[in-house]
Design a binder for these strands. Structure first.
Lengths: 251, 251
DNA sequence: CGGTCACTTGACTTACCTCAATGTTTGTGG
DNA sequence: CCACAAACATTGAGGTAAGTCAAGTGACCG
């Protein structure tokens, strides 16, 4: 998506200095020397929309960062019930140092590019370049906070509030990437199918569909096509989400 | 509250070497030199059952580890709906380096002793003694896994499965502390009121009560008093919890 | 002995789920 | 370029798990 070309996306040779996630990813705190050593060991992998990156329980001998695209982490029960437990946007980290099998299914929901490291070298790097470990701790703490926010949503919010919250979360997250305006109306493209949303929210896809329709009828959101949403009044959406409406635009 | 007094527990002067959470807490990886420096800055605080340790949004200028007792992290919505987002047992860490207000209510559900550090010195220690940061990362990753397990529970499990899961989780966690036998029947004392359980599970307290009664009637658990539970067949409980029954006794 | 707290149980309501039909968009091959 | 299928989405009708409201029990404590 970044350089030249039609669909190709030849991301194989990005310099860390030009990387779009340079200042948010696990490498954010690295200095030039440290970057140079990352540059040597990193490699890129691409996945197509819908492709499963790893299956829960499978051996996973790499870790990495999402560079472009979106992926999900999902847990499945024996009888097939599924719950999404992570939504990975550009700069988010995949994999756990010190563990060698995946705990969740990791699925690319859009075309996806990851910047990867084999696990062993990465673990050594965590020791040798403390900035990586420090940044990873920071990111993990942020993810834990997000997970706890999500627990409130799953445990206590109504279907309508869940939908409103999801739209607000996605709007906020890609505002923080694109640094969009906060005044006036906000525009979002949902990167998820109704089914994926239902797995995120602990609902059925029918309930998701109904509640989106309801929010549309009530003028909270305006929909074009299936996935393109305009939010005329973001504060109003936040009220519907049941969140403390105070907070700044970014978390 | 801490020193002298009725129920005593005089924990004011524990040596790190004698500390019951020495090998599981944030200090687990520290060598003798590092411990010595912790010894200088640490201090103990005690709280009574029911006491709120910090309120969400309040300034929090310390971090610490639970030494004995149990605490909870809870989020509250404007209209009073509450969701527990963390259950803190001995060795668990409280507080977030690099943030100065609490994100959740922290409440002692039993009498509680914490080993504390003022935030500033602790943050400096994270830089100077890498073992602390490394261990904290490891613990945070574990907590994130636990949170994701919890998300599955909140989003997809039935009330009955939620109760069975909670009992299983508590049984496992204090088995891992006490290193109890795994053969035959397991005994647990629930450290939570029905209301606290309902906040954990995203249910009402009436539903919690009904489902506990149902599990009792079906012989999955045996109850003495209100909180003392015997589990005649742990595998059977795990089936009721909807978990893959395979796994070893500890996570 | 009265009051509070933690819990249980019952009767009724409702938000969300399930099952089913239908609509819309997109891509594919004749 | 159209026909057809496949994937995604919407909507309706009816069922059910869990919530709400309310009454009542038992233990503990001043």
């Amino acid at each position: 998506m970044s350089k030249t070309a039609a669909t190709p996306v030849k991301l194989t040779h990005i310099q860390c200095g030009d990387c779009p996630i340079r200042h948010r990813a696990v490498c954010a705190r690295c200095d030039d020397d440290e970057l140079a050593s990352l540059e040597e060991t990193k490699y890129y992998r691409s996945f197509e929309a819908g492709q499963t990156i790893v299956w829960s329980g499978d051996r996973m001998d790499f870790v990495g960062s999402v560079v472009t695209g979106i992926a999900t982490l999902t847990q499945t029960m024996e009888d097939g019930r599924r719950q999404m437990v992570g939504l990975l946007l550009p700069s988010d980290f995949v994999g756990r140092p010190g563990r060698d099998t995946a705990a969740y299914d990791v699925v690319a929901t859009t075309d996806l590019v990851m910047c990867c490291f084999r696990k062993k070298p990465f673990e050594e790097m965590m020791v040798s370049t403390p900035h990586v470990g420090q940044r990873l701790l920071e990111m993990t703490l942020d993810e834990l906070d997000a997970a706890r926010e999500w627990m409130l949503l799953l445990g206590r919010k109504t279907a309508r509030e869940k939908i409103a919250s999801l739209i607000a979360i996605i709007a906020r997250r890609d505002a923080s990437l694109k640094m969009a305006d906060s005044g006036g109306s906000v525009v979002v493209d949902l990167p998820l199918t109704r089914e994926a949303m239902s797995e995120y929210l602990g609902l059925t896809l029918e309930t998701v569909s109904r509640q989106i329709s309801a929010l549309r009828k009530d003028g909270i959101i305006v929909i074009e096509g299936k996935r393109h949403i305009t939010i005329p009044d973001f504060e109003r959406l936040l009220e519907e989400a049941g969140d403390d409406s105070d907070g700044g635009f970014l978390v």
